[in-house]
Design a protein around this nucleic acid. Sequence first.
DNA 1: ACATTAAATTCGA
DNA 2: TCGAATTTAATGT
Length: 245
Amino acid sequence: MTPVLRHPPPLKQPIYQRARAPNADELENIPWLHTLDAAERKVAVADLKVVRIATGELLCRVGRPVTYWFGVIEGFLKMNNDSDLGVPIIFTGLPPGGWFGEGTVIKREVYRYNITAVRKSVVAGLSVETFHWLLDRSIPFNRFITQQLNERLGQFIAAREIDRMSDADARVARSLAALFHPVLYPGVGGLLRITQQELGYLIGLSRQRVNEALNALQEHGLIGIEYGGVRVLDLEGLRRHVQRG
DNA sequence: ACATTAAATTCGA
DNA sequence: TCGAATTTAATGT
């Protein structure tokens, strides 16, 4: 039976044409902004652009020149680098508060990842010029970036470990812990808005198996399952959760 | 795969 | 603009 294809997505206005200035609420959700002094913040705010991204829409593609440093304000994005080889090599979720691409922005290279919205999201962008301007003068900003890079390194190492684990419950637990990482993703705060379907996609398990694993983790009192999301009750416990009882 | 339930959207005043 | 009705999405098994 030939699969029924969904309608092709309507031709979208390019993302940069849909960008607008951020509102106060959105600025609230940009963690590094609060570390800047008044003058720097003014420059940053003037440069920041915000755009709504529909589910499945591509924010940036491998190989395109870098124009912005991006951060998630709302929603959920995924990052992968599977453009030319069939298998995704790294596959990370980006919850609100997560900023990414600093590595490539610093080197003024081309993007090395595809970033797509797992559901409709609001994304902020800071231009490369302003990024470097801040990098050249603000120590708190540099501190944020350094921390970001360091944490990302830890994420990559953790991702390799998770990939090697055979126990599905443990994989789900560790992946949740990674998504909740408070330093890298300060915006999540207790409740992770992600469906079990999305988690399955992210972790590489069926939705059914994710559901089982989540229920097991709930039994252990590590998380609470909610409609359309997961509440993390014991982040340390999740991180340490290695095998089923 | 299917049944159940929550949320989002539509519609009529 | 309110809320009931309908549709869509998420969950649990």
